[in-house]
Structure formats: C-alpha cells, structure tokens
Write a protein that binds this DNA or RNA. Structure first.
Lengths: 203, 203
DNA sequence: GCAATTACGCAACAGCAGTATCGAAAAGGC
DNA sequence: GCCTTTTCGATACTGCTGTTGCGTAATTGC
C-alpha cells in the first residue's frame, strides 16, 4: 500500500465502492445469469470504461464481490477437535446456504452451487483470479489449519496427520457434494463426515 | 429408445457425429476459451440451426463432448481395499492429466481444472445439464461404491462406514485440490489421502 | 502558468451466444 | 399425387462482453 501521489488524475475512490455495491445488489436481485456489466455500470452511475479499468473482466468483478462478502470465521482450539471441526464446517455450510438466496430466479436448482462453480471457473480462466481465489481460501482456512496442528501437538490427532490433507478431505467432500452429486448438505452429513475422517474407515 | 418412424424429415444422423468430432477437435486445438459454436458449426459443415436443435446451448454441447471422452474404468474388489482405492483414484488423476493437454493455449495454468470447473458451472446453470453430469459421475463411480460395500461386508472396513461419505472424502479432496488450492496432485498425494481416510486422524 | 500524465464519460465497434424467419428438402399419412 | 410434419441451410437480428478512440477533467512537476 503506497499512497504514492501518482502523476495523473487520481481515481475516484467513491466509484469503487459504488460499483461493488451495485454489483452485489444486482447479484442478490437477479442472480448470476441476469448479471450484466452494463447494468452494473448503469446502476453505479459510472461509465463502463471506469469499471473495466478496475476489474478487467466480468469474472474479476464477480470474484471481487464474492471476496467482499466473505466474512472471517473466528476459530480457536478448544481442546476438542471434533467439536471445533464440526462447528467450522457447519459455518461453511451456513455460508453456502446464505448464498442460496442469491438469484432465486435462476430456477436451475442451487444458486450457491452456481456461484461457487462460477468462481471456480473464473479462477481457472484467469491466472490472476486463480491466485486471488487461492489467497481468499488460504486466508479463510489458515486458522483451521493451525488449529489442526495444535490438536496434533496436543495429542488429539495422530502425529503423522497432515493438516492440509485432512482439511482437503473435509472441505473437498462438502464442495464435491454440492457441485457434483448435488445432494443436500446438512448438519447430520457434516457430523458423519467428521466422524468418518477422524475415526477412519479401516476396521 | 423408440425408433418410432416420426412424421417429418428425419434427422441427419451423420450430423451429430460430425458436430461432436468437430467440437472435440476444436477443444483439443484451441482450448475452451477459443471454443466458439459458430466455428464448430463451420468445421462440421453444418448450419448453426442444426447444431442448436441438438444441443440448445454451448454448455450442453461441451458436456456432451466431455461425456463422450469419459471412458469407464473397470473396478473389481481384490480383497485389498487400500490398493483398489489407490488404483482408482490414480486413474481419475490420470484422466485429469490427460485433459491437461486440452487447450494448452489458455496460458492460465491448468486446462484440466478449467474443463472441470466449466462443466461444474454448466451443471449449475442448467438443471438438465446438472442431471446429466450427476448421472455421468454416478455411472462412473457406481462400481467403486459397490466395491466399498463389498469391502465392508468382507470385514475390511468398519461396519458403520458409509461408502458414499467415504468416497466424497476421497474424490472431493482431489477436485478441491485441483480447483481451489491449485496444488499438484500426484501418486504420493493419493497415497497420503487414502492412508488418511482409512486410518483416520484421531490418535 | 504550463506540460505531462492519468482518469473520466461518451460513443462506436468487434466478436460470440442464441433467436427468428424464410424457402427448400425429405419423410409419413391418406 | 397431395398434404402435413419436421429438418435443413442461409441470413439477419438482439443482447452481452470487452475494446477503442476522443474530448475533457483533475492532479503532479516545474
């Protein structure tokens, strides 16, 4: 962050917020499929040029909006990994369900799946968006990973457990179920998931 | 499948194959981002109308192409779940790596992630595509799920293991890593994954 | 004050997805 | 043979994404 007094006319800071606000509002109102850059610019009372200077593609804009509504989930090791993990995963699920209201109009099943898939596709299309998405998730999950390490050092987890792999299993199962199998995700499922990952499948 | 002699002019069967061939070729040559319906129609020497009568959107066409190159992986319970699972997951990884050649031109990292994400987004956008994708995966994974049940009955897995949840963990971790964290997936990772899921994380 | 630089709004543009319309062709029903 | 139905090819069109060019406004450096 260098507030380096740049050479030319400074950017209108107000515009950024107005655009993001308009974009979020449009996303909530109309859903992803009826979301058009032109309309965002119109709603924000900003020229399309101004918008595109900040976010070079629709994908960039969408990811910026999603990143903005991602709130941090406070996580602290309580001494009971099972409870902590269950709470955190349920928080993720709640976040997805909160997204679900986005674009009820899509009529094609699940809007949360739609947004997640759209973000994933955007990440795959543009390298810089991909980096931003990875950073977003890394930031979001950092606390949980350190929690897992604490639990391991505390003796609650096997010493050879790799937090990264374990978390891939848990979070991956949620998104896989959401995107691929399309079956519902509720607290009971989260419970079975955590139980399975902790106790293991071997007899 | 009713070869019901319909009333009007019959569809040119040849066109379907020509379109799918052209689409696959274009996908292999140019990647997803330079893939345009107009060009597919031109390459297949078919009017755009003819194409759109068969696949009503670009998403439908893409999923049809991907479904076409999905080959079945034979799976049979060998008495060693660990080995069987490892083999199958590596098969999935190989499939993803085979996709990786698709669209080298995209320059944005990983083309396999791109296609997977694009298919997921298409599934979320259109209910019927979603159903087709779910069916595709269900068909692909059915053998593994029965394998897991056999292993459970054989006493190799705990009796309370739910094959569906276990498989979500494994496959989900792969796709989560591919799409979200973007870190490489190799045989060593698959190994750690299977080990983790089977032995469990609890001390 | 003046030049250089950068942002702004406006308008026009190219490219692609998907739709609409039209005449012609190929089949069945009678 | 004739009518109906459906497909085909061709063309033009709408709407959206993303780009470009241009005149103008705001700020820095001198």
């Amino acid at each position: 962050m260098q507030p380096t007094a740049r050479r030319g006319r400074p950017r209108k800071q107000e515009a950024d917020a107005r655009i993001l606000d308009a974009a979020l509002e449009l996303l909530l109102d109309c859903g992803y499929d009826r979301f058009s850059v032109d309309e965002v610019a119109a709603k924000a009372q900003v020229a399309k040029t101004t918008l595109y200077r900040r976010w070079p593609t629709k994908d960039h804009l969408i990811v910026a909006v999603v990143a903005r509504i991602q709130d941090e989930v406070p996580v602290e090791y309580s001494g009971d990994v099972r409870a902590d993990l269950t709470r955190y995963l349920n928080e993720i699920v709640n976040g997805l369900n909160r997204m679900r209201q986005v674009g009820r109009a899509t009529a094609s099943g699940d809007a949360s799946a739609g947004l997640v898939a759209e973000v994933a596709a955007a990440a795959a299309r543009h390298a810089d968006v991909g980096a931003a998405v990875q950073a977003m998730f890394a930031r979001r999950n950092a606390l949980v990973l350190t929690l897992l390490e604490q639990a391991r050092e505390h003796g609650e987890l096997r010493s050879d457990v790799e937090p990264g792999v374990l978390f891939d299993q848990l979070a991956g199962a949620l998104y896989y179920r959401l995107l691929v199998t399309g079956r519902p995700i509720d607290a009971a499922y989260v419970d079975r998931l955590v139980t399975g990952a902790l106790t293991g499948a071997s007899a």
